[in-house]
């Protein structure tokens, strides 16, 4: 379904966009299986209408919100962001949505809110990956940001891509997009937002804390224990000649976000 939006060129890259069929057919969304094609194949089993989000914790307007009510006050904009996966591939995707900060402000976080935590839908009936006996993820999928990261102008809530409603496999009906962090931070199909004083535990950190940290900023100087992060394959990649490009610190968004991490040892807080 086509969406109404205005372009936000100040937040967009002019790099070549990854074709829509690659963006919608090559996904990590383990709720529907660990194969890259599984989400496209099985995400149709999830119903995204109606959708509501539970808001709780350190804020003045907690409660259960219908998605439309949460989005009503905002105009959609299109932002063309780079997406860098921790697995060393990347895409360029035109998202449609609203700044995360605008939505969070309307929920009126209190001064005790130091972090914001998100959860993906947990419904094994609709999500076959959650029915797997040997999954190491403790469902639901959990992510979080420090409050100043969440309020950064780049943090985005997407409801569409390529001008249309988000396909289920890309995290319909609403997902986070944090372009300077590895893709797993950009949690999909959000059903819960919680403002917290303490730093929340996040899913990949729970599974393998030595491999995935809370911050997960794109950083070519800090290798994943199993592979180098110095380069990435920009998709679609060639067969005999992979489309290698150098990975840039903070995925090229250093100017907008580097100040958030001043004085932090990023090899320790990876």
């Amino acid at each position: 379904q086509a969406l109404d939006y205005r372009a936000a060129p100040q937040f967009s890259t002019d790099e070549q966009k990854t074709p829509v069929d690659a963006v919608t057919a090559y996904n990590n969304f383990y709720e529907f299986g660990t194969g890259k094609g599984d989400p496209e194949r099985y995400a149709g089993e999830m119903s995204v209408d109606p959708w509501s989000i539970e808001v709780e914790g350190e804020c003045e307007r907690p409660g259960r919100y219908a998605l439309e009510d949460l989005l009503k006050p905002h105009e959609y904009e299109e932002r063309i962001y780079r997406l860098r996966c921790v697995e060393a591939w990347s895409m360029v995707i035109p998202w449609v949505g609203v700044p995360l900060a605008a939505v969070l402000k309307q929920l009126a976080p209190t001064s005790r809110a130091k972090y914001v935590y998100f959860e993906t839908l947990h419904d094994p009936k609709q999500m076959r990956g959650q029915r797997s006996l040997f999954s190491t993820i403790e469902w639901p999928y959990r992510e979080g940001l420090r409050m100043n990261e969440a309020m950064n102008e780049l943090s985005f809530l997407a409801v569409g891509l390529y001008g249309e409603t988000l396909p289920n496999q890309n995290g319909a009906p609403i997902r986070l997009v944090v372009p300077w962090k590895y893709g797993f931070k950009s949690i999909k199909s959000i059903v819960r937002i919680r403002f917290m004083e303490e730093r929340p535990k996040t899913s990949w950190e729970m599974i393998a804390p030595n491999e995935y940290g809370f911050y997960a900023n794109v950083n070519p100087e800090v290798d994943h224990p199993r592979w180098s992060q110095k380069r990435e394959r920009r998709l679609p990649s060639g067969v005999l000649r992979p489309n290698w490009i150098e990975t840039i610190k903070f995925n090229g968004y250093e100017e907008q976000v580097a100040h958030l991490y001043k004085g932090m040892d990023l090899s320790r807080y990876y």
Binding site: T18, P19, A22, A25, Y26, K36, G37, E87, W89, R233, L235, P236, S237, G238, V239, P242
Partner: peptide, 15 residues
């Protein structure tokens, strides 16, 4: 699959 493109957008990994 490589010839038809069914291998997907990241052929190196898939192959």
């Amino acid at each position: 699959d490589v010839a038809t493109g069914d291998i997907g957008p990241d052929p190196g990994q898939a192959i």
